[in-house]
Amino acid sequence: MGLVRSNPIVRFEMRRRFSGFAAAAGIGIAIGIPGLAVVVAYALTVRGNDQFNGIDSFNNTGVILLTTVVVALTGTLVLFVPALAGGSIASERANQTLQPLQLTLLRPAQIVVGKLIASSAYLMVVIACALPVIAIPYLLGGVPVRTVITCLIVLAAIAIELAAVSVWVSSWFTKPVGAIVTALAMSLALCLGPWIVAGLTLVSQVTVAAAESPPPFDENAARLLAATSPTALFGFVDLGDIADDDPAGSSGRLVAAACWLGVTTLCIRGASKRVVAPAERDR
């Protein structure tokens, strides 16, 4: 509990996070990119609207717009979060401010969680600021509020996981630049890697299935693989059309949630071990 409440690092980092030009610029970027994407998508979909309208349980334009906004926001987060959180511990090392911190009564986990909370809080504000853009599919496309809210929650969860990974990467570095670049690579690998591997698995299975007469085709393995990506959390979003109550869908969601929890806690624990003074390592 002391990790969150009465944690001096939280207060201290919040103040630094939410001040200055960078804080405002970050919010601008996070609204600008999805905003632009939604405008383009709207312009493209409105034309062909008549052909598709009325097929699904709710307006197709809405689904397309929502997907566009959410994909754009996720992409922004994947690039933005490492830049935001990747320097958090490495820069303390670079500025030699970590030693004085290590000597205080703060526990290493408090330092790590404090930094994570401050970064996440800023990201929540960024996501909240993107709310008007997310509201466009709701207003124009008739997407239910419930769906929009689930999307917001999933975006927040992705942001937190990526922040935790970035802080963990940061704890291994002594220079912020190296940490940020590595965190960026990790972030991309974590979000896209499982999909690529899953895709390759499917392709190879299809190839094998085509060669043999009784097809040992099993798309569940690929699905579960893909579910390890934080983006698989979007499986929780109800798009109405695809009846997602098949067993693979729910086990995929379970895997996605478990992976989110596992990666986040492991990163916090790993970073905490790296933040202690050298005298306390490996003890």
Binding site: P8, I9, R11, F12, R15, R16, S19, G20, N95, Q96, T97, L98, Q99, P100, L101, T104, L105, L106
Partner: peptide
């Protein structure tokens, strides 16, 4: 190893808190 971008009193307050 001092933090920059904050006042002297805030700096010490943070450490007192810690």
């Amino acid at each position: 190893g001092l933090y920059t971008g904050l006042s002297v009193v805030d700096y010490l307050d943070f450490f007192a808190d810690s």
